[in-house]
Design a protein around this nucleic acid. Structure first.
Length: 421
RNA sequence: GCGUCGGUGGCGGAGUGGUCAAUCGCAAUUGGCUGUAAACCAAUCGCCCUUGCGGCUACGUAGGUUCGAAUCCUACCCGGCGCA
């Protein structure tokens, strides 16, 4: 018996399923929203609130915890869960994401999503790839400090791994699949992820193919590094990650490739290409073994989660509830609203009339509006808590609807009143 | 009363003859945020409209000098400070 396992309670319609992921630190009822705890905390939320907010599990970040406080310290603390005082199931993302977000994407103010109408070969996408650089040719192995810092990017990818400079102090670091797994072993989460390359949404087919192939080789190396550590392999599960950017053929190919390896679950990567991924999610998931859990990395708008669940996704993580919350965006059954806006100044109703969270039970929109206007830290805190609950509850209701055969009806009724602006 | 400094858009505060409807900050209005370098970023912010290198009205008030004034001059009004 592996440390991480999955069982399905009910299926349908389509690829939708309700199940349970079992880990050494407890189980996760799916579909589930995995709260993002990048630096070993859900921003603005105390661990003591997890339970009432419906937070079953969190995902922390290898890159960030490696830089600070360092994996050795987290290891000494007893692992990331113990360190943050959370006894439930935990995950760590591999840090591969930083290849993009701190490399090519850095400082470009680039939306991670391409406009819907943008054709793959549109020249406009070159604006996304830095100073007009082309990534068509294989990047040579570079591990030279001067070269790295003068390269204009903070991350350089080669066959073996990625060299990058810390966003905190500019020092040079290097991750390889083996190193990422080693760090994730020290971080000690129940579920760890392979080290992958998350490419720019602007990357063309040629480079995307190259990156996906490399990610597959890295996946095999990550898996080997994990299975090779008997002790850790008995306490942590590992997920492979499907890549392929916005290209359906590469996605399918990637799913097949990753599915052929003996992972405990699967992540669908590249939230940058959201629209394309959601469109072919069922095709991708049909390539993945049905009996293993599937996680959609970085996607978590309510409307996206319905598509995800219908397409066979079991868990989601997304920074939006906390980021939106911190910046005044509130989820309601009628869609997202900006609570600092003038229209809520005298609105004495709860943030969401149907929400069961402690914010909605105790406070009004006018109050939260006031907290934002006066820049009280409680504003972002309450907004984040509510948003987290909104998404965990949405997952709970989706699970319920699958169990009682009413997923379709629930989706229709929810989306009919949920306005997507 | 005399002297002196100063009165600029909701507020603070630049500008001291032309390209100024007027730098900037705050406030205000709105938008964005999708494996978190994000309690952040962006746009708008005199009035009007056919939204344009458009029209109109504006820099205490009223005049004046000048091709041209928020910027110079005169008077007045108001405020700070100093002396009586």
């Amino acid at each position: 018996m592996r440390p991480v396992s999955f069982s399905i309670d009910e299926e349908g319609p389509g690829l939708a399923r309700a199940g349970v992921i079992t880990t050494p630190h407890g189980s996760i009822n799916t579909p589930a929203f995995v709260a993002v705890a990048t630096k070993a905390d859900i921003k603005g939320i105390s661990v003591s609130q997890f339970k009432e907010l419906g937070v079953q599990t969190v995902i922390a970040n290898t890159y960030h915890l490696y830089l600070s406080p360092g994996e050795e310290l987290v290891d000494k603390a007893g692992g990331v869960g113990e360190f943050m005082g959370f006894r439930g199931p935990t995950m760590t993302d591999s840090g591969g994401f930083q290849v993009f977000s701190l490399g090519e994407g850095f400082g470009k103010k680039l939306s991670k999503f391409l406009p819907q109408e943008q054709a793959p070969e549109s020249p406009a996408v070159s604006a996304a790839s830095g100073q007009g650089e082309r990534r068509e040719t294989p990047v040579p192995v570079i591990f030279d400090e001067d070269l790295a810092t003068s390269h204009g990017k903070l991350a350089i990818v080669d066959e073996e791994g990625v060299s990058f400079t810390s966003h905190l102090n500019g020092t040079l670091h290097r991750f390889t699949p083996e190193r990422s797994i080693e760090i994730q072993h020290k971080l000690g989460a129940d579920i760890i992820y392979v080290f992958d390359e998350c490419t720019s949404p602007a990357a063309e087919h040629g480079y995307q193919k190259e990156a996906a192939d490399r990610t597959h080789r890295w996946a095999a190396r990550s898996l080997k590094a994990h299975r090779g550590n008997i002790g850790k392999n008995n306490r942590q599960g590992i997920y492979g990650i499907v890549q392929g950017g916005r290209y359906a053929d590469l996605r399918i190919e990637s799913a097949r490739e990753i599915a052929s390896m003996d992972f405990d679950g699967f992540g669908i990567g590249g939230s940058f290409s959201k629209r394309d991924i959601l469109g072919i999610l069922d095709k991708v998931n049909r390539e993945l073994p049905k009996e293993k859990p599937r996680h959609l990395l970085g996607i978590g708008e309510p409307e996206d989660m319905f598509i995800g669940v219908a397409g066979g996704i079991d868990t989601f993580d997304c920074v939006l509830p906390t980021r939106n919350g911190r910046t005044g965006g509130i989820y309601t059954r009628h869609g997202k609203v900006q609570i600092p806006n003038a229209e809520f100044k005298e609105d004495f109703s709860p943030l969401d009339s149907e929400c069961d969270c402690f914010v909605c039970r105790n406070h009004t929109r006018a109050y939260v509006h006031h907290l934002f206007r006066t820049k009280e830290m409680l504003g972002p805190v309450l907004a984040s808590a509510h948003n987290i609950r909104f998404l965990t509850r949405l997952c709970e209701r989706m699970r319920e609807s699958i169990l009682n055969g009413g997923f379709g009806e629930f989706r229709d009724s929810f989306l009919s009143s949920y306005k997507i602006r």
